[in-house]
């Protein structure tokens, strides 16, 4: 990332750009995807991001929330954020309708190491809302499908109606991503897997572990056990990547809130190589 200097709206890291809600898609309960347009057309033109990066969504008077981008990085016309109602900002966002404006700063943070996965197999392991930050990676893998070996998505949710973007699975499957879902709590109608997502990793064939990459996003405990399973399958620790979550306040490494040991999650993360943080993952309250 090049040094950004102060002065213009595009370069002052504190300054948000105005965005407008172009559409809202209700996903699962309590979760919606906001399709955003930039109020300033030139801002839209210069905005590009890498899968895994996030934006700070800023609701004036309420505050900011770090939300990962969940749209296709190649489609410049759309900028999607899948948001779960959790804190004040997202609660307030949930009250906003199409046409409402608010602020956006970004994109920030590191991205999924797609280029480091070239020619090998890719396993994406995720749970719940964690699929949102991985969706741009799925799009990118699909866009460049021939450059990779097997691409497998292992996705767990609490229950069948907690599975995000389910309408897209067939399309992904048809285009070369092996989609495997599982739920912790089955409903009577559920015909799929029951159990945690790490179980899927435990039993899936891993043909060439040395050249297999795991991209994982979910609750920290889930990522820890996913990494354990992956290591158990012979996948090198350098090929396991996780996406961390911490309290991001400034998003530019200047406020200290999101530290995780040596890592500023906002600028060194959110996507980090597992072995670089693993020693701290199970330290309580660190």
């Amino acid at each position: 990332m090049s040094t950004v200097t102060a002065g213009t709206p595009a370069t002052d890291p504190w300054l948000a750009q105005t965005v407008r809600i172009a559409g809202i898609t209700d996903e699962i309960e309590g979760v919606a995807t906001y399709h955003l347009d930039f109020a300033d057309a030139s801002a839209a033109g210069s905005f590009s991001f890498r899968p895994g990066q996030f934006n700070m969504l800023y609701l004036p008077g309420v505050g900011e929330a770090a939300i990962s981008i969940s749209s296709d990085p190649l489609l410049h016309g759309t900028l999607d954020h899948t948001v779960r109602i959790a804190g004040q900002v997202t609660t307030e966002l949930a009250r906003a309708g199409v046409g409402a404006t608010f602020g956006l700063r970004g994109p920030f943070g590191s991205s999924w190491p797609i280029d480091e996965c070239l020619e090998g197999d890719v396993i994406l392991v995720t749970g719940g809302i964690g699929l949102a930050p991985l969706r741009p990676a799925i799009y990118e893998l699909l866009n460049r499908r021939t450059e990779f070996g097997n691409v497998t998505l292992l996705y767990g949710a609490r229950h069948p109606f907690g599975l995000l973007y389910s309408a897209e699975y067939d399309d992904w499957q048809a285009n070369g991503v092996d989609v495997n879902t599982t739920v912790d709590r089955a409903s009577p109608a559920w015909q799929g897997n029951v159990g945690v997502v790490t179980q899927l990793l435990d039993r899936m064939p891993v043909a060439d572990p040395e050249r297999t990459s795991v991209l994982c996003c979910g609750p920290e405990v889930m990522m820890w056990y996913t990494a354990r399973s992956a290591l158990g399958r012979g996948i090198p620790k350098e090929r396991i990547w996780i996406s961390l979550e911490r309290n991001m306040n400034c998003a530019i490494g200047l406020c200290g809130h999101c530290q995780f040991g040596p890592t500023f999650v906002c600028k060194d993360g959110p996507v980090v190589r597992y072995d670089r943080v693993s020693q701290y993952l199970r330290v309580e309250g660190f």
Partner: peptide, 20 residues
């Protein structure tokens, strides 16, 4: 042991907060 760990993870209900 593996089965036990996965059962525990299931018990932890990690995505609970995500569903309202």
């Amino acid at each position: 042991s593996r089965r036990l760990v996965t059962s525990r993870l299931q018990l932890l209900d990690l995505f609970e907060q995500e569903s309202l």
